[in-house]
Amino acid sequence: MRFTLFVIMALAIALGLGGWSARWALDQSAEIGTVAVGPWFANPTAGAPDADPYSKARLAKVGNLTLGLGEGVQFTADRDASGRPLRRECQYKVVGEAPAARVWTIAPYSQEGRLLQPGSGRVAWLTSNNLMRAEDNSFAIAVGPLARAGNWLATSGTGPLVLALSLYDTPVSAASGVANVVLPELTLEKCLDG
């Protein structure tokens, strides 16, 4: 009886520590293969068959599909240009020009990688095909819960926010490099809680 209890206890500790260490390894390895462009981050090889095992495990954990090497690249931002964490209850401005791409999208996500639904009658993402632009082809997108004239990407609720800028059919890739790419600026305007 004591031996059985000892074995059960040893298995419980081993499984608990094993699960904790696997989660810790995934969280600590987020920077492997990642490049930064201002507040935007991308892992251009995440969708490749020979991607590192940590990238594959993170994608499997979230359950989202990623872009393959020949399809494009996705940049995400969870902080503004000043390094403050993005929040759903705050108003942000995304200004600039996107790099060369046939089509690109920008969408709000939770930290767990789930698309945030902004509420009835509002769009969950914007695409380069339906964006209003200035004469020099630049754009400005308001991101936040308050309706705005022009390009507005609605958010709802409270809590952390991650913006995803996906470039499809683009020369920006792991092979050509993403370090010299210029991406739109992401700045805080105000937060509704003060």
Score class of each variant (00 low, 15 high):
52 D>G: 04
53 P>D: 12
53 P>F: 12
57 A>F: 13
57 A>L: 09
58 R>Q: 05
58 R>G: 02
59 L>Y: 12
60 A>Q: 06
60 A>C: 11
61 K>A: 09
61 K>H: 15
63 G>A: 05
63 G>D: 06
63 G>F: 08
64 N>Q: 15
64 N>H: 12
64 N>S: 15
65 L>D: 13
65 L>T: 12
66 T>W: 01
66 T>N: 08
66 T>S: 12
67 L>M: 11
68 G>Q: 00
68 G>W: 00
69 L>S: 03
69 L>V: 01
70 G>C: 06
73 V>Y: 02
74 Q>I: 01
74 Q>N: 10
75 F>W: 06
75 F>G: 00
76 T>Y: 09
76 T>R: 07
77 A>F: 00
78 D>I: 05
79 R>D: 09
80 D>H: 08
82 S>L: 11
82 S>F: 05
82 S>C: 11
83 G>I: 04
85 P>W: 02
85 P>Q: 14
86 L>I: 04
87 R>N: 05
88 R>I: 05
89 E>C: 08
89 E>V: 05
91 Q>V: 14
92 Y>T: 04
93 K>H: 13
93 K>C: 06
93 K>M: 00
94 V>H: 01
95 V>F: 07
96 G>P: 04
97 E>A: 11
97 E>L: 13
99 P>S: 10
99 P>A: 10
100 A>G: 14
100 A>M: 06
101 A>N: 01
101 A>Q: 00
101 A>H: 06
102 R>P: 09
102 R>E: 14
105 T>G: 07
106 I>A: 04
107 A>H: 05
107 A>W: 08
108 P>T: 00
109 Y>S: 00
109 Y>N: 00
109 Y>V: 04
109 Y>R: 04
109 Y>F: 10
109 Y>A: 01
109 Y>E: 01
110 S>V: 08
111 Q>Y: 05
112 E>H: 06
113 G>N: 04
117 Q>E: 13
118 P>F: 05
118 P>I: 00
119 G>S: 13
120 S>W: 15
120 S>Q: 08
121 G>K: 02
121 G>F: 07
121 G>C: 10
121 G>P: 11
122 R>K: 09
122 R>D: 06
122 R>Q: 09
122 R>T: 04
124 A>N: 15
125 W>N: 12
125 W>H: 12
125 W>Q: 11
125 W>M: 10
126 L>Y: 11
127 T>R: 04
127 T>D: 13
129 N>Q: 14
129 N>I: 05
129 N>S: 11
130 N>D: 15
130 N>K: 15
131 L>S: 07
131 L>W: 03
132 M>S: 13
133 R>F: 09
133 R>C: 13
134 A>S: 12
135 E>W: 15
135 E>C: 06
136 D>P: 11
137 N>R: 14
138 S>Q: 03
140 A>R: 03
140 A>L: 00
142 A>D: 13
143 V>N: 02
143 V>W: 01
144 G>M: 00
144 G>A: 07
144 G>E: 01
146 L>Y: 13
147 A>F: 08
148 R>T: 07
151 N>T: 07
151 N>W: 10
153 L>I: 03
154 A>G: 03
155 T>P: 11
156 S>I: 07
157 G>I: 07
157 G>L: 10
158 T>K: 14
158 T>E: 09
158 T>W: 14
160 P>Y: 11
160 P>A: 14
160 P>H: 14
